[in-house]
Design a protein around this nucleic acid. Sequence first.
DNA 1: GCGCCAACTTAGGAATCCGAAG
DNA 2: CTTCGGATTCCTAAGTTGGCGC
Length: 634
Amino acid sequence: MADVVTSPILTDNQNKSELCGGDSDYGSHSHANGNYEVDVEQPRSVKQEPELSSFEAALAAAAAGVNHRKKENAPPVKKEVYSDDDDIPWAERMAKEKKEKSVEKKKKKRKGSDSEDEYRPEVLDEDEIPWAERLKRDSISSSPKKKRKIEVDSDYEEKNVDKEKWTKKEDSGSNCVYTESRKDKRKKKKKDKEARESNSSSSSSKKTPKKEVKNEQGEILQKKKKKQEEVEDVWEWWKEEKKPAGVKWNSLHHKGPLFAPPYERLPDHVNFKYDGKVVQLSDEAEEVATFYAKMLNHDYTTKDAFNKNFFHDWRKVMSPAERELITDLKKCDFREMTVHFEKQSEIRKAMSKEEKAKIKEAKEAEAKIYGFAFIDGHKQKIGNFRIEPPGLFRGRGGHPKMGMLKKRVRPEDVIINCSKDSEIPVPPDGHKWKEVRHDNTVTWLVSWTENVLGQNKYIMLNPSSKIKGEKDYEKYETARRLKSRIDDIRAVYTADWKSKEMRLALRAGNEKDVDEAADTVGCCSLRCEHIKLYEKLDDKEYVVEFDFLGKDSIRYFNQVPVEKRVFKNLQLFMDNKDPGDDLFDRLDTASLNEHLRSLMDGLTVKVFRTYNASITLQQQLAKLTRGIASLRFP
DNA sequence: GCGCCAACTTAGGAATCCGAAG
DNA sequence: CTTCGGATTCCTAAGTTGGCGC
């Protein structure tokens, strides 16, 4: 069975490797046996996240009295001494234990043997050896075999190539030709095969014109050749020496960003009407009006905040005369524009194959120029080489800024990052870059500041690139280390909980400004109003009910029976607080992660997410592929 | 030490592709 | 051939995290 936690190969470039965990529900069940069932019946509007244990960890950290940012404002945590051990505030016990542990740790360190950070399981099973090392080891022990594997169709190599949809092929001439990924080719090959068969077996059955078949056959040979060279060009960066800390590249060369095409005015017969009368808008005002017209049938335009923000920003780009005339959005009639765009999209859909192919070709030509960067001499695909076009900000949930105008990005807004000795990308005619820098401690090629939230946006490499792959690799290695430590770590905070654990699936949750973003929370930013405590609910005792908006304003609702002690602690946390107060006022993501790092080097909340998603995928794969030998990972 | 922010990852939703069924 | 719906890809919003400056 494929070892998910082991292999960076499975961290595919669409971030979907975590999908298995991401869409499944762990939170609503207590998994004493560790078997996480995927619950497909979870209502879509109420989402449960997979990072089971972050909440426990949060509680642990909170209780351990970690330093926090809002200490001054926080009401003092009630200190009570209980005679019954069962009723001693968990927070206090944790603090005590932590102290004892740290003393023990120091003792151990003095002995000079295994410090926590250098923890190694006694026996390394295959799982615990980093994938790269295993690969190296394998290549040493059986290098001829390995070499053959690369040439033949091994799963491992195939996945790598798949990740790279387009790979460089040095043609006999100086031109670089890009071949499609194996996956795509497999599909094409299938088609080709069918075409050939139908051609050779019966000349009468002509599904495709003869001329075309001939071409395709020619292509097959070429493709075979390409396929071999493509494989040779896979950059096996995981076998290379690592760069010094902080350095992300030695040389970086690219063509800069591709800007959105300039605005083209609507045809004369498409009109905007105000108060029933046709109004000729200026270029700027018309462009922004089209953004709204394109969204007229979308839910967004029924939202007050969206309309208000749009109208405010639209009026800003109007000419004084327009601004004087157009004062009420309700009197604006965009329908002709909307109909025009709908027609256009229908025309696009109804285009002939040839026309579509032409457009595709033109896009590919753009991608050929702008879609690649050379990093340390290797050609790598760029993730998003097109600069975001202007439009209306589509904030999700109840975002207060939805509908605001996202302005057109000009070269003067753009910072270019490349190596000093490289050919510096040329800005469009008559323009200048905001800045050209040569910072090899970051991975972005281009950046600009977006005007709605004032945040930086970046052009970065595709997930299949070395830079992203390496990070992904690290991520899974950390998750793998967590696999060997998870029992210890859980034991730290569940020592007294015996059988029942309070396992939840929550994000960490950072503080944020309610005026700047939707009011969503995670574990660390939960407020008292987000939980309800029931001593008894239905037939269960000590039930905690969670009801809040998580990431993307997706509602999280869950009722979890917990250990009495956990329940009492939550009661304690809620004591003397208003509904709007932070539940864990002594906790934030920084201190939580600091605490986690003390348990394991490199451990953060996110690692639990990766770990849980991976282990779930592994378990599900094991369950569903039992006995299917052909699905074995090499 | 704490608050802010740059840099980076993750994931929702729209657009597009693609294949099966009618 | 058309229609439909699921899969895939693209785009970018919304998170997390670590480091830096005050």
